[in-house]
């Protein structure tokens, strides 16, 4: 069979899980309905994996997020590499204790005598009508916790490469998947392809302004940058890939060059990741900035259901373009 010319985001996830399961017997998957008999995951990201690797390793669980994550942490402290799927990011609130008080802290509190090589996958994102309890972007909550890593991908190849790195990483890592992107197509990665954690990618080089973003908005920002180029504004686009700990060097080097920065994320703007990055830029580069750093995020509201309301909630290309132009004075 010829290699596909394109793969979807969920196929990228599937490839990473498949490779990790094949490479290391300590890797296993837990999650609600993830085995093939239950549908291969509600977003089909695990389709075919239980048939290939067995239901002992790709295991459908009760709807019990605390037990899923708690059991995964317990197995991880004995040296296993569990990958737990929490169907929606909002459900992480149910097992926040296991993530924040246990997964993130056990290495430190044990003086390094134990570690938690755990990966948590979760889907989320607005724009698809899932309403207030299935759409939130909560990455800032977890980025605020020392010991956690937070990763998200903007294309199928990155999804594969970042997830594989997350599974091989010795720290607990939250991997965020935007549900609006599962069907998105992209170039297929080579077998074994990995993207290192903690390293950003420069998606577009430019000299006037740096736009820092991650996940689904990367594509939106690239489109806006293309439009702005026609207007004579040269934007550099940074895809963080790892949200925490983020690639400070890549961000600061770029902003030192452009003197202007805009941060874009889908999470609501207030108290978001953009605030931290903006603050770090101001702390390190205040004297070199040509204008104040701008932020674009979704509106400070619960995610609404009605499509017009949901679109009004979300950040927009127009808002990104306006923010960039504001930094240009």
């Amino acid at each position: 069979m010829n290699a596909p010319t394109k793969i979807s985001f969920s196929q990228g996830i599937n490839m990473a899980l498949d490779e990790a399961l094949a490479a290391d017997p300590n890797v296993f998957l837990l999650g609600e309905d993830i085995a093939d008999a239950q549908g291969g995951g509600v977003f089909k990201a695990t389709l075919g994996l239980s048939a290939k690797h067995g239901t002992d390793r790709v295991r459908s669980t009760p709807i019990s997020e605390q037990a899923i994550v708690g059991a995964a942490v317990g197995a991880a402290i004995t040296g296993m590499r569990p990958v737990a799927e929490i169907m929606f990011m909002n459900f992480l609130t149910v097992c926040m204790d296991q993530l924040v008080n246990h997964a993130a802290k056990l290495r430190f509190m044990s003086g390094g005598l134990t570690s938690v090589p755990l990966t948590i996958r979760c889907g989320t994102g607005a724009g698809v009508g899932f309403g207030g309890q299935h759409s939130d972007m909560l990455e800032a909550w977890f980025a605020h916790v020392p010991g956690m890593k937070v990763v998200t991908a903007s294309n199928p190849a990155d999804a594969k490469g970042l997830l594989l790195s997350a599974i091989e990483d010795d720290d607990p890592t939250l991997f965020i998947e935007n549900v609006a992107m599962y069907a998105a197509q992209g170039a297929p990665p080579e077998p074994g392809y990995k993207v290192p954690l903690g390293k950003a990618a420069i998606r577009r080089a430019g000299g006037d302004v740096t736009i820092i973003t991650y996940g689904r908005p990367v594509g939106e920002v690239e489109a806006v940058a293309e439009t702005l180029a026609a207007e004579g504004i040269s934007a550099e686009v940074i895809d963080l890939r790892t949200i925490a700990p983020f690639d400070e060097a890549a961000v600061l080097n770029s902003v030192a060059k452009t003197g202007r920065a805009v941060i874009v994320h889908e999470a609501v703007k207030a108290f978001g990741v953009g605030a931290e990055i903006s603050s770090r830029i101001h702390e390190e580069l205040f004297g070199q900035l040509k204008s104040p750093v701008k932020r674009v995020g979704s509106k400070y509201s619960p995610v609404p259901f009605s499509p017009p309301l949901e679109q009004a909630f979300l950040y927009s290309r127009a808002e990104i373009a306006a923010a960039v132009k504001a930094t240009m004075g």
């Binding site: 605390q66 037990a67 994550v69 708690g70 059991a71 995964a72 942490v73 317990g74 197995a75 991880a76 402290i77 004995t78 296993m80 296991q98 246990h102």
Partner: peptide
């Protein structure tokens, strides 16, 4: 849950 995870392992 952690102790249950030890048993799972």
């Amino acid at each position: 849950p952690l102790g249950t995870g030890l048993a799972f392992a």
